[in-house]
Structures are given as structure tokens and as C-alpha cells.
Computed example of a mutant assay.
Amino acid sequence: MKGQEFYQADAVAEAYEDKRFSRGGRLIDRREKEAVLEALSPLQDRRILEIACGTGRFTVMLAERDADIVGLDISQAMLSQGREKAKRAGVTDRLDFMRGDAARLPFPDNHFDAVFAMRFFHLADTPQAFLTEMARVSKDLVFFDTFNARSARSVYNWALPMGSRLYEDSEVTELIAGADLELEAVTDDFVLPYGLYRKIPDWMADGLRDLDTAATDGSVGESLATVSYWTARHS
């Protein structure tokens, strides 16, 4: 798994959200949370597992909306940040954080109503193994995102600290079928690269987002989208 050692560092975990979700990056945070809520709702009393939960950005949000949620991550440093966030939000009674390997999930079959992963599959060295494990422990829904091979990200991917695994749509649909899931929906988003949003102030990001959304609504924009959100279910 790419980044396994990188994300273990306390300094990386402490700076993670400020680095990615400050300035115009707040818009990306809002959009990703919106995508998760759209896919997983209704949430009340549903048992949910988040793979690679990191600092608890989604885990805490879902617990605040009355989901019973487990957040799993390989990095103890990231989990520590998540636990602190949960305490501040007052939702420690609705969630558990666990350190574990996403390729060997410590749960029985069909244990959760839904399993999801965000910002995970671009680091996956064996994506089929990970998705198959997610499907195994979910009785119904599996939701995840991917960075796309034909996007602007492919231009500068080599310059990123760990790079990213970039996916063609056909590859992801094969992964879904290989996990004995059926694709329910896919949404393409963000023609412009994430890094651009993070470098500009909020007010400028909102205007840029309007242009970005208009571009994504067209067939050409969809084919060049940076990210895709995939919703799959057991048949």
C-alpha cells in the first residue's frame, strides 16, 4: 500500500487536513462529504464501516448524524487525530476507531449495512483484494472513489510524493464485478485538479467551481473528470 509509512508520522497526521482542506480546499471537503451523505443516507442506526478513515473527517460527520460507525486505518497517528475530533464533537458513544489492514478486515461476512472508502483506491496496490474484502463485510452497499486516468491529474501525477493509481472506467467496472457487486451509479466530478483549488482563497474557489461544474455536465467534461464516485450493491 502506497503511503503506509508516510501517514504513520505524527507531523503528517497533524497537518493532513490543514494542508488539503484549507483555503479553496474547503470546497473539496464539502463536496466529498456531500457525496458520502448522498450515497449512504438514511443513516440513523445504520452500521457503517469506513476504510482508511484517516483523521475521522467522514467518520465523525456520520456519527453526528446517528450512524453507528467503525473507522479503520493503518496509521495510529491518523487515528489519534480522529479520536480527538470525536471527543470534541461529543460522538464517542457512536463510533469506534480501529487500527487494521483493509486487505484482511477483522469482521464477519455481512457485518455492516454499508462500507465505504474515500481517497483510498489511488494508493491501493491490490485494488481487487481490497474491494472484495469491503464487499464481503457489507450486506448491502459499497461506496468508493477513484482518480481517473484521463484527467488533469495524469499530467502532474509523477510529481506527487507517492503518485496515484489512476483508473479507466472499464477497470473499475471489472473490479466491481470481480467483487460480486453490481454497479448502481457513478458520478464524475472536478475537471480542474484539486491542487489548483487548494492554492486559491474560498471566494475564488466558488467561482471556479461554477465553471468546473458546467464543464463536467458535458460529455467531454465527464471523460476528463478528476474523480469518480462509485456506488455498488450486492445483487
Rank of each mutant, 00 (worst) to 15 (best):
M1D: 12
Q4H: 12
E5Q: 14
E5S: 15
Y7M: 12
Q8E: 15
Q8Y: 04
A13I: 08
E14C: 05
E17C: 02
E17A: 09
K19Y: 10
K19H: 13
R20D: 00
F21Q: 01
I28A: 07
I28G: 01
R30I: 08
R30G: 05
E32N: 11
E32T: 11
K33D: 02
E34W: 07
L37I: 10
A39R: 11
A39F: 09
P42A: 03
Q44D: 08
Q44P: 00
R47I: 01
R47T: 10
L49R: 11
E50V: 09
A52S: 14
G54I: 07
V60H: 10
V60R: 08
M61H: 08
E64V: 06
A67V: 04
L72T: 09
I74C: 06
S75P: 04
Q76F: 04
A77H: 09
Q81Y: 01
G82V: 10
R83K: 14
A86K: 13
K87H: 06
R88C: 00
A89R: 12
G90K: 10
G100Y: 00
D101W: 02
D101R: 05
L105Q: 02
P106L: 06
F107V: 06
F107Q: 05
A114G: 09
F116W: 03
F116Q: 05
A117T: 07
F121T: 06
A124K: 12
A124L: 11
Q128D: 13
A135E: 05
A135D: 02
R136H: 07
D140N: 15
D140F: 00
D140S: 15
N148P: 06
R150H: 14
R153Q: 15
Y156N: 09
M162A: 06
G163Q: 12
E168M: 11
E168Y: 12
S170E: 14
T173N: 05
E174L: 07
L175W: 06
E182N: 06
A185C: 05
D188A: 13
D189F: 02
F190R: 10
V191N: 02
L192P: 02
P193T: 04
G195D: 06
G195E: 07
Y197L: 03
R198I: 06
W203M: 11
R209K: 14
R209I: 01
L211T: 02
T213M: 08
T213G: 02
A214M: 07
D217M: 07
G218P: 00
V220P: 00
L224P: 01
L224A: 12
S228Y: 00
W230F: 07
A232L: 01
H234K: 15
H234S: 04
